[in-house]
Amino acid sequence: QRITLKDYAMRFGQTKTAKDLGVYQSAINKAIHAGRKIFLTINADGSVYAEEVKDGEVKPFPS
């Protein structure tokens, strides 16, 4: 399943989102408010992988 960072954070909370991605909650808040195009893939085992689309390139998040 693929979902935006904002939607994932709204569904699970910023604290869990940060923990799942290995970053601080403040980084999640800042990324959402900056309007960054970050998409999360939720794997069947429950693990989460995030990618950011920037300038036409897709890069892992966090980099």
Rank of each mutant, 00 (worst) to 15 (best):
Q1F: 11
Q1N: 14
Q1A: 11
R2P: 08
R2Q: 10
R2E: 05
R2W: 15
I3F: 14
I3P: 03
T4A: 13
T4W: 08
L5F: 01
L5C: 02
L5D: 00
L5M: 04
L5I: 05
K6W: 09
K6G: 08
D7A: 09
D7N: 07
Y8T: 00
Y8N: 00
Y8A: 03
A9I: 14
A9Q: 08
A9F: 09
M10Y: 10
M10D: 13
M10T: 11
R11N: 07
R11Y: 09
R11S: 07
F12L: 04
F12E: 05
F12S: 03
G13M: 01
G13Q: 01
G13F: 01
G13W: 02
G13I: 01
Q14C: 14
Q14E: 15
Q14N: 12
Q14H: 13
Q14S: 13
Q14V: 15
Q14R: 12
Q14A: 15
Q14W: 14
T15L: 14
T15A: 15
T15R: 13
K16E: 05
K16R: 09
K16I: 05
K16M: 04
T17C: 07
T17N: 01
T17W: 02
A18H: 02
A18P: 01
K19H: 12
K19D: 08
K19E: 11
K19P: 00
K19M: 11
D20R: 06
D20T: 07
D20P: 01
D20H: 06
D20S: 06
L21K: 00
L21P: 00
L21G: 01
L21R: 00
G22N: 09
G22E: 04
G22I: 03
G22V: 03
V23M: 10
V23C: 09
V23R: 02
V23W: 06
Y24R: 15
Q25N: 08
Q25Y: 10
S26M: 10
S26P: 08
S26Q: 10
A27W: 12
A27I: 15
A27H: 11
A27Y: 15
A27R: 07
A27F: 14
I28W: 01
I28N: 00
I28F: 03
N29R: 14
K30D: 15
K30E: 15
K30C: 14
A31G: 03
A31Q: 02
A31T: 04
I32V: 07
I32L: 13
I32P: 00
I32D: 01
H33Y: 13
H33V: 13
H33I: 14
A34S: 13
A34E: 15
A34K: 09
A34L: 10
G35Y: 05
G35K: 13
G35S: 08
R36A: 07
R36I: 05
R36C: 06
R36N: 05
K37N: 12
K37Q: 14
I38Q: 00
I38Y: 01
F39R: 03
F39Q: 03
L40E: 00
L40G: 00
T41M: 12
T41N: 10
T41G: 05
T41V: 14
I42R: 06
N43C: 11
N43H: 10
A44H: 09
A44C: 09
A44E: 13
D45V: 04
S47D: 07
S47F: 10
S47T: 13
S47V: 07
S47H: 08
V48M: 08
V48T: 05
V48K: 03
V48E: 00
V48S: 03
V48Q: 02
Y49I: 11
Y49P: 00
Y49C: 09
Y49M: 10
Y49A: 08
A50F: 03
E51L: 08
E51N: 07
E51S: 07
E52I: 04
E52L: 03
E52N: 01
E52Q: 04
E52S: 03
E52T: 03
K54W: 12
K54N: 12
K54T: 14
D55Q: 08
D55E: 10
D55W: 09
G56L: 06
G56S: 07
E57I: 13
E57V: 15
E57G: 10
E57Y: 12
V58I: 14
V58W: 14
K59N: 09
P60W: 05
P60A: 08
P60S: 08
F61I: 03
F61W: 15
F61K: 02
F61E: 02
F61T: 02
F61Q: 02
F61N: 02
P62I: 05
P62T: 05
P62M: 04
P62S: 04
P62D: 06
P62C: 05
P62A: 04
